[in-house]
Amino acid sequence: MAYLILKDLLLQRNMMLLAFAYVLLFAFAFQSMGDEGQLVAIISMVGYMFVMVGGAWEEKNNSDTLWNSMPAPKWKIVGAKYLAIPVYVAFVTLVYAVVSSAISLLQIPITTAPINVFVAALGTIGVFVAASLYYPVYFAFGYTKSRYWHFILIFGIVALSSMLPNLFPEKPAWIDPLFEKLPKLTGDAMFLVVAICFVALLVAVSFLLSLRFYGRREF
């Protein structure tokens, strides 16, 4: 499986260079989101771009025919896509560190947040959530058709986040009782543990769906 991830990295060398430009652009665009929001948004968005570009390369090279003609089990083909996500995130975080250092050294008037593990983990969760929603459709229909789902996903999130304040101008009555029933979450660590458990479940379900859909496909 490591070789499948290596292949994704080799194919995305141009994207790796472009990542520096994207990080700089998003750092500028998301300055107003505050320290944590800016870094989470950058890691999530650029990480997800790696996910999408990886899919595009597979489609361009019609590689499903290659891998499914080889002794490569489908769970490895599918699993490698999920396992590449932490690699993408690690790379984007590294790029962010380089870009934010360069901004600081060159005294470019862009505010950048310092990297911390909690925020980087939130960014990673962001990519996993987006990829978990995207990959089952990608493995069911291939890149070209799944792009429609991708657009629905992205625009849906953007539209929902802008509509929410209008839909719920006041906090709905069911929110407080719901949270009273949950154990009181104190501090970042507990929040992170809950978020990781949720994402692990989401990724597991997404992986199983992807595997099932991919197994049904014909090439």
Partner: peptide
């Protein structure tokens, strides 16, 4: 099984050294 198809299914952006390094461990 060895296979040769009429269309190229190898990654065109890779060199054959890179491509083979990815393929070979499966056999």
């Amino acid at each position: 099984i060895g296979f040769v198809y009429d269309d190229n299914h190898f990654y065109e952006e890779l060199t054959i050294t890179q491509m083979t390094k990815v393929l070979a461990p499966f056999y």
